[in-house]
Amino acid sequence: MARSMCWHCQSEVAGEYFCERCVKVQPLSKEQDYFTCLGLPRLLTIDATGLENKFYEMSRSFHPDFYQTKTDTERTISLGNSALLNTAYRTLKDPIQRAEYLVRLEAGAVKEIRNQPPADLFEEILSLQDDLEEFRAADGQPSADLTALRTKLQTDREALERRQQDMESRLFDLFETWDRLQRQFEPTEAIRAKKESVLKEMRELLSNRTYVRNIINDLVATVG
């Protein structure tokens, strides 16, 4: 990452994280995105081992432990870089967070991707919430109704879990589509439009998945 000038010796910085002349650590730009930070292209399929190795390598360069005896400025840079690096790694390591992050990043380029709210899903969640309320109100007092309700809620939960899996496998299919489009050297209008629609579908899947995830968590916590 070539930066214009070393904060310490004012010479042109050619090295990646350190000034080649005075060997001082350089701050990572706050503007760079997590992919750039970890030296990755903006693709969704990631080599997990490669990512981990890169993270360890960079951690070794920036870790605050190695800056205990250095100047205040260097310690601050080491802290800032480590914090950015940790967030970047944590975000990109998890495929769902990675996709959410990419969609957010690209949202600027693809302006106005607003989704139709999933009205059916909301209705379903609210009616499940009503059932859950009823279940909680029964307070474990055994009755035939409660047993029936428990069975119903368990069946609902299984169905929701299957739906979550379907959403995720569709999402991972889209990872491949995205990567293929992203690798095109000269993006035509058609490719741009295709990318936009992939982002839109991913965003929709991700947000619906969050709703489904939440209700599943509630079901698990209440019914078990």
Binding site: N115, A119, L121, F122, S207, T210, Y211, N214
Partner: peptide
């Protein structure tokens, strides 16, 4: 009926 995708609230 509305929802917030950020947190999954309905």
């Amino acid at each position: 009926i509305v929802g917030a995708p950020e947190c999954g609230d309905v």
